[in-house]
Design a protein around this nucleic acid. Sequence first.
DNA 1: TGATATTAAGTTAACGTTAACTTATTTCAG
DNA 2: CTGAAATAAGTTAACGTTAACTTAATATCA
Lengths: 351, 351
Amino acid sequence: MLKKKQVTLSDIAARSGVAAMTVSRVVNGNGYVSEVTRKRVQEAVAEMNYRRNGLARNLKRQRTETVGLVLGDLSNPYSTELANAVRESLSARGYNLFICISEHSAKEDIAAFESLVDHNVDGIIVATRSNQDGDARLEAIANSNLPIVVVGRDFRNDSVDHVSADNFTGGFEATRHLIDLGHKRIAFIGAGFENRSSLKRLQGYLKALDMHGIVVDERLITGRRESTYDVPGYSTEKIGYEGMKRLLSLPNPPTAVFARNDFTAVGAMSAIKEAGLSIPKDIAIVGFDDTPLAIHTMPALTTVRQPMRLQGQIAAEMLLRRISNESVIDREERILDCELIVRESSVALVS
Amino acid sequence: MLKKKQVTLSDIAARSGVAAMTVSRVVNGNGYVSEVTRKRVQEAVAEMNYRRNGLARNLKRQRTETVGLVLGDLSNPYSTELANAVRESLSARGYNLFICISEHSAKEDIAAFESLVDHNVDGIIVATRSNQDGDARLEAIANSNLPIVVVGRDFRNDSVDHVSADNFTGGFEATRHLIDLGHKRIAFIGAGFENRSSLKRLQGYLKALDMHGIVVDERLITGRRESTYDVPGYSTEKIGYEGMKRLLSLPNPPTAVFARNDFTAVGAMSAIKEAGLSIPKDIAIVGFDDTPLAIHTMPALTTVRQPMRLQGQIAAEMLLRRISNESVIDREERILDCELIVRESSVALVS
DNA sequence: TGATATTAAGTTAACGTTAACTTATTTCAG
DNA sequence: CTGAAATAAGTTAACGTTAACTTAATATCA
């Protein structure tokens, strides 16, 4: 048995003895249709199991009321919160959301962009990590006047809005907190020193050390190279674990650790416990993101909260503003405050 | 300054002095085009920043090479792994993936379906929790011959394939493991007794108790009601925490707990530790899913691993099989084995 | 009561692309 | 050097929908 062919407006029109346009009016509930005709058409629609063809509809209407969101990965609660907030804000305005995942690969980034553009989404929110090829394609898309907003990453283009947390100040505060507690040997786990140009959290860490006259020891900055793209999301825990092991094997290990994110922190905590050391007595630790996990670790993790939902909401608003605007508008940029949440994993050194 | 209008094939054709069809051939790299013409067209394409209109293209071609995946939420690593596996399998066959999130709401489920159908995806993979209204719509879509595969949930339709983990046996094994260790008072956290008809893991738990002559104590089965849809994903931890508190306040608390999933288990562990009790000495605990978290809890969590990636791969294959098949094909169903991973959170009772 | 507004349709022509077909030129084996 | 095959285009007509326009009947009001 062969699959049935698609049922079209004209099929319904023929069956119910009206014009296609009338069926369209019934289906979309606009224009003038008499009660009798409406009933008749609706019956035909039900009988023939008609579904409108969105492609044709959107082609004709020149808009899809759909927005794309490109995420690097799904495993981070950050992505999750962001996606949910974006979805909610869009949903309230009648827009649908399609999410694409690029697994932090430039190739997949591009595939996601192409795919969304091919579906004529009305706009794209990009929350992947920056990479050269992907950025080039994004640039081209932006120049073809498709509304774009980037979240939590760099991208400079006159017609692309930008929202992110203040990762620099967050990293600064986290590190200063550890310094205030009396720590001098403070490690950074999650990225190497060579990534300092792109990683704001690391920059904040360096700035805090600098401001308090602490000389940077590059051996205390450890993590995978930023350019590695083939890492599944959750491996950040592994990076924390392995990074901490490396730090513990140093002749003069750190007394405090600022981890790039909570997962990395959790990994580091495992390594510390495994070495028979106590948190925060032997080693204090601060994470980043305030994932739901943070209150459940032992001890509860001090971390920097970034307003994830708010970023999503603002990104959605920015995009909708661009979508509904007929003329070219100025670039908008919003950097949102982070908040240090002090819990049990960081406490004053008894000196 | 007004936004530019879309550049079309004919614009390029006009500029480069050829027919629209020739431009199409150049853009898609098929058919015969001379080297000279190709160059000329490509220049025009670059100059005018042409992007093909996917809607028109897909409308004409009657396929989109895109598949939709509807997830209940993103917060569960289960969703993440599944999405990634699906994406990879599809990507290898040249298909794109759009992900929609329904936040476990029937309304959003339907919105996601509509939206995907409107974009004429070639097929849909559904991994949301079952609900009446959503299922009704799904039924209608299935009957209009759009290929559909459901993952990890119930749905009976002759043209809808099904893949899931063997949650029943998983729940059974987890519970039997605790029984084998000598436990008699074994609690279930994550759903109430009233959900036993829909929750396979709970059924497995009940079956194991029954087979070993242990009388079910309904007070030991605790969790939120399954019908509650307004719960953000990570709150499962809270459910575990609160459920455990309730259990600990019983006159005769359990000596072992089977948690519906690892997050619930983590929440329960917090409550146990907070009560000053020891895991596994006072209370043993088993989770489900073997999330990456499980090895990082203190003590490491015994849990049931379900083959998440495999489910995604199989779902993708099933769907592609339906998509590429011209005729109606038989329903396929795959139930995949789970594996009990014994770690430190469960150990023999000293009796 | 005539003029105007409202209601209820139908008609036409795109939206931007490509499958299918046609035409013209070039290539090359026999 | 013929003629079949390969190459290089162009032409036409959809894909399924809806905006914009037209027509006709009915309702409303000064």
